[in-house]
Amino acid sequence: MEKRRKSKGDNLVLRYLVLGSWALFCLVPILWFLSIGFRPRTEIITPEPIYWPTFSLDAWRLLLADWPIFDYLRNSVVAVTGSVVIDLILGIPAAYSLTRYEYRGRDDIGFYILSTRMMAPAIVAIPIFFLFRNMGLLDSVWALMLIYAAVNLSIVVWIIRSYMLDIPKELEDAARTDGAGDLRILWEIIIPACLPGIITASVIAAIFAINEFLFTLLIASTKSAYTMSVALANFTGGSDGVIYNAIALVSFLAFLPILVLIVLIQKHLSRGLTMGAVKG
């Protein structure tokens, strides 16, 4: 590794060129819709190129006046946060059980939990719709919270489990001889030791939940349950036709929380996504 980094065959210019192009490729669309979002509407639909766009908060004002953005944001935040909390409450003990206790069918249960993720969500769309209708939870943020939690639970369990597998058994043995019981070991030793894993799992679950579309579309029908992702898809700018600068601004707002989350955990992200497949 060290040797490869130093070998003179590496051309730094070429390397930065490649990386720079890739970064540009990823960033331009984002910068583009950001720039559209803060331009006056007239500048967007003109055919001539505009090199020095005028800054304008028109779209922003339109959004605040006409569009219940804070309702959608609130719905997203409540449903996503709630689902992550549910996932952690259920997922941490499940992961611990799958790593540490010996019982019949343990690995099968572990695989079953993972396999729930493999199914195409559309398959259960109709049963879920009827289920929540019968419970009277249609168009409710609580329903979304439960669904997100259910969809992401498998991934939360598996990510946390992969981190727990790396905690030496000795640590628990030590805590036990020091006089700690099972719950205390989980709370004081295991959870702090795999905190990076728990954070990674939470953030990944949150990102999936923010982006969740199908079930949200199914359950939500008004602004009392619309989240950013569905509201964004339904948004055209109101009664005045398609208003691109407002759409761009909304897209950016929907994208922002995910950006923040990714920046927070980028160090752990690749590790979390390999889910313990590669030990090292």
């Binding site: 030496p168 000795e170 640590l171 043995d173 030590a174 805590a175 004081e188 030793i189 702090p192 030791a193 905190l195």
Partner: peptide, 10 residues
């Protein structure tokens, strides 16, 4: 223990 088993977070 062989690996000391100190609690890393404390």
């Amino acid at each position: 223990f062989q690996g000391y088993a100190l609690y890393p977070n404390m």
